[in-house]
Amino acid sequence: MNRSPYISEAPSVTSIMLKVMLALVPAIAAYVWVYGGGILVTLALASLTAIVTEALMLKLRDRPVRLFITDGSALVTAWLLALALPPLAPWWLIVLGTAIAIVVAKQIYGGLGNNPFNPAMVGYAALLISFPALMTTWPAPLALAEFELGFVDQMLFIFSGNLPAGVALDAVTSATPLDYLKTQLTLNHSLQEITQSPIFGTLGATGGELVAAAYLLGGLYLIQQRIITWHLPVAFLAAIAIMAGLFYLADAGRFADPALHLFGGATMLCAFFIITDPVSGPTTPRGKLIFAAGIGIMTYVIRVYGGYPDGVAFAVIFFNICVPLIDAYTQPRVFGHDK
């Protein structure tokens, strides 16, 4: 057998996936700090669903189950989806979303390496369209909530939908800043009035900005480990910052400042963990810049003019479709060729 090269220094796919999960740990810790331990239940549920559905689909497709389960890609999808969902989403929503991500977005297209769309975002988008109310009901950060749910209370709520006696749903939930911003703007409130609300923090949302900072930290770790390149996050964040900056300069009364857009919503999660999914993204350096900048612009447009408070999922899915085109037009110059 001629199989040169005979040596390899490659990290395995599994180790890459584990590093991505490791990079998510600070954000999860921040999450627990801000919203309580319920996220751990969500993560566990999503992981379990992902592994079970992945195994089932592999079995049905006659693929080696063990080889593909141990690659860790299903877990990464599950974690990303779990972190994108509202922290107190009911159990069936988590299970359904994960199942859609794994079965429809990943396995039906051919499993690892063959999905044209980001599985986590497909799961998220499907849930957002089907259950908009549930998907936009975010718990208030513990610091702001009228009633602080304990870990057990949160778990009970996830599984049964029941709150402790005497606690109203309103007491534990609040609108997210982007959501609040959108509804209040339609009521003709000025931005200055709106941002007086305690849900706005220094940069983004109270509490949420801490989680965003943790994503940023994890993302920098991934760049340092050469799991992702700088192109995608930098282009994405720059596009959002420039868009938000231009609009903010044009009319500071109607458009939020760039910091809110960078540290609010799912921006940081998206910048370092969602759009950096290699399978559904472009491969050329220039293509990465175009792809990420496109998602950034589109996210901003959906946030400001669209029907949903955040547009990351739709923007990502839309640009996933464009990937083959982007790749085809951004082929780098090959050694010894002009152009």
Partner: peptide, 20 residues
């Protein structure tokens, strides 16, 4: 055993001919 390509582009980063 070989897994499917995940398009991580480590190969493109390593290619001395700057191919994809």
């Amino acid at each position: 055993p070989a897994l499917p390509c995940i398009r991580c582009t480590r190969c493109a980063d390593a290619c001395p001919a700057n191919l994809q």
